[in-house]
Amino acid sequence: MTLRQEKVIVIDPSKCVGCHSCEMACAMKHFGVCHPHYSRIRIQEFREVNTFVPVTCQACEDAACIKVCPMNARIRLESGAVVTDEEKCIGCRACVYACPFGAPVIHPENGKTMSCDLCMDDELGPWCVKACTMQQALKFVDARDAARAKGRDFAAMLKEQNEPPHQDDADFSFSFSVE
């Protein structure tokens, strides 16, 4: 799989502390209000084992959401980000179902979907990443660097796990890593 040349948000859940600052930043940036449902990045909480996973659009190269959208409303921007064109979206949620991360989320006001636009060209960069300055669970890096940094490339790894396997790829079974 080849990755695009653009910058991507890379997630390291082992560093996430579940403060939800990224969600607050995202909601603030896009809506000027504060609530996790208004954020495009969402933290999956497993607080009972103190594990948190920030989930945001990874702008996959071969994005399932683009392929399944009946209205062709999932579009790729110049920056590489994949977003929903709200003019066209009919809120059928096909992109949510098809995404291995469940990254597109429901727009709380109009029921359409929305996903990370990398804060377009805001001079601060993606706000969620900036909000994570101290914990470094989110990083905004060159996609090629991200692919090179093995083990940290959460996006590529999970993406691969969740894609239909190649027919000639026999050893694709996923074993339980921890006992």
């Binding site: 949620r93 949510v96 179902y97 291995p100 469940g102 796990q161 969740n162 396997p165 079974s173 996923f174």
Partner: peptide, 16 residues
């Protein structure tokens, strides 16, 4: 439950 369908599709691919 529909919003989590992607999880189980992933399971299907991986043959969990």
């Amino acid at each position: 439950f529909a919003d989590h369908a992607g999880l189980f599709m992933g399971f299907m691919w991986r043959g969990v």
